[in-house]
Structure formats: structure tokens, C-alpha cells
């Protein structure tokens, strides 16, 4: 009887251990076998980052030109007023770098407009608060969204310290020129949040982000983890700042001042 109980407990133990590793063993046996791979044309990184040269890109007009390119590539609706949807936009120093204000700021710096967008934070609060994992951080550092999953709760908008996210209060298609859509890319629907995606769909086929391409070299783009990348070279040479560093989000967008 005693022996029996002991062997039963042993068996139960082994069974429990088996249960714990079975799913992993099965996945391993299948070789994690999703029949998929990356496009060899694509460019990859450990943490994509952007360095914006504000000595060269600093007028509302110049930044709006890039925003127009971005918004037409991604079918972003044009709405004026409080319900506006934006992926890239210009703003003044005091609004852009709230913690780094100074009453006697250099005239040049004060006069400039700054190009603002999602910072693709290394420690993104929007990802942490999203209840559906509609917002997630990809292995290449991009904070992306799966619009299929977004339930429009707007937690992420409350979580983002940079106002990088916009909500579709109405049907975005009502505010798009339907004849001029980019038919390679979807639109969004009413009730979801949207934001800049660092042009993941372009990186996947080996193209640089649309704004970088249109910036005439005023925006640098590259891998922050690669010491030989373009962004790291620029960061070594020029003085840069980031938005709200005290929030601890570790933005991946840097500004040359």
C-alpha cells in the first residue's frame, strides 16, 4: 500500500512534468514550422531609429510637405480641428521639448518648428497599457499596430506622453480623396487609433521610410544598436536631444539642435 502510493505520486509527477513541456516539445518537433520567411529584399535592424536635423528641417511648410507624403502613402484622412488624425506634424520648441525649456533660448532654436511623430520608444507605455495587444513592439524595435485588434479604448493615447496617437472619431474614408488612395495600403475604420509605423511596409521591401526619402538628407535613419550605422555616426558627431527624457520611455527619435 505504501509502495503503491509512492509510485502513484512518482507517476503523477512525471505526468505533470510531461504536460508542462509537451507543447514546447511539439512546437520544436514541428520545427516551429510556419512556412514563412522574411523578404530577402527587406532591411532589418535591432532597433530602428531616426535622427532629425532641425538645422535643416525647421519650417512648418517643410515639415508639412513631408507629412503630406506620409499621409498619402498611408491613406491618413485629412480632418481639421479637434478630430484631426496625424502621423507626422510640426510644432514649436515649447511644445516639443517641454522639460528642456529655457527663458533665454537662442533665437534660432526658438524660431524653429520641429517635426514630431511616434518615437518608437524602447520602453513604450502605449504597448504596456493596450489591453488587446493591438499595439506591440516588434523585434526590430518598431512599435506597430494591428488595427484588426484595436477596440478603440484609447488607453494608449492616455499612455503616450507625446500625443503621437490619433483616434478615428468618424469614418476616415469620409475624409479621404477616394480617387487618390494608395491602393497598396489599407485605410482604417471608425473607432480605431492610428499612428506612424516607421514605414514597416516599406522597410519590408527594402525601402527607407517615405519621410526620410523625401527629406533631402535632413532625416537620418538606421539601426541604433549597430555602432557603424548612419544614425550612430551622426549621433557621435552632433549634439542631440530627445523628447521628455524623464518619462523613461527611451525615444528612438533624436533631434539635432
Amino acid at each position: 500500500m505504501k509502495n503503491n502510493r509512492r509510485s502513484f505520486i512518482k507517476l503523477a509527477g512525471i505526468a505533470a512534468a510531461g504536460l508542462a513541456i509537451a507543447p514546447k516539445a511539439m512546437a520544436a518537433a514541428m520545427g516551429g514550422s510556419a512556412p514563412i520567411k522574411e523578404d530577402p529584399k527587406g532591411i532589418t535592424a535591432k532597433q530602428w531609429a531616426m535622427v532629425i536635423d532641425t538645422t535643416r528641417l525647421n519650417t512648418a511648410q517643410g515639415i508639412e510637405k513631408l507629412a503630406k507624403v506620409c499621409h498619402s502613402v498611408h491613406n491618413v484622412p485629412f480632418i481639421e480641428g479637434k478630430q484631426e488624425v496625424k502621423w507626422l506634424w510640426p510644432d514649436i520648441y515649447e511644445h516639443s521639448f517641454t522639460e528642456q525649456e529655457n527663458p533665454y533660448l537662442a533665437d534660432a532654436v526658438k524660431k524653429r518648428q520641429y517635426a514630431l511623430l511616434c518615437n518608437h520608444c524602447q520602453n513604450p507605455p502605449c504597448v504596456r497599457v493596450c489591453p488587446t495587444k493591438a499595439t506591440y513592439k516588434r523585434p526590430d524595435g518598431i512599435v506597430d499596430m494591428d488595427y484588426h485588434r484595436c477596440i478603440g479604448c484609447r488607453y494608449c493615447m492616455a499612455g503616450c506622453p507625446y500625443g503621437s496617437r490619433s483616434f478615428n472619431w468618424g469614418e476616415p474614408r469620409d475624409h479621404l480623396d477616394l480617387a487618390a488612395l494608395n491602393k497598396e495600403y489599407p485605410t482604417r475604420m471608425r473607432g480605431v487609433v492610428e499612428k506612424c509605423n516607421f514605414c514597416v511596409e516599406r522597410l519590408a521591401v527594402g525601402k527607407l521610410p517615405a519621410c526620410v526619402e523625401a527629406s533631402n538628407g535632413a532625416i537620418h535613419f538606421g539601426d541604433l544598436n549597430d555602432p557603424n550605422s548612419e544614425v550612430r555616426a551622426v549621433l557621435r558627431e552632433r549634439f542631440t536631444i530627445r523628447r521628455k527624457p524623464s518619462a523613461g520611455t527611451e525615444p528612438s527619435v533624436y533631434y539635432i539642435i
Binding site: 510556419a34 514563412i36 520567411k37 523578404d39 506597430d144 494591428d146 484588426h148 491602393k183
Partner: peptide
């Protein structure tokens, strides 16, 4: 599956049972 592979894993080439490759995209 295509959606999750493309969006989350960043893998946008699908190989079918016959070994032929396709770009993962509904529209394209």
C-alpha cells in the same frame, strides 16, 4: 495566420505546399 506573420513576426513571404512563394498581402 498571414496577418499575424506579416504584422507581428515581420515575415512576409509564404511558401505553399508545392514550394511556391507568395508575398503575404490581401491587397497586393
Amino acid at each position: 495566420d498571414w496577418r499575424d506573420w506579416a504584422l507581428r513576426d515581420g515575415k512576409r513571404i509564404y511558401t505553399n505546399h508545392a514550394g511556391k512563394e507568395f508575398t503575404i498581402s490581401l491587397q497586393n
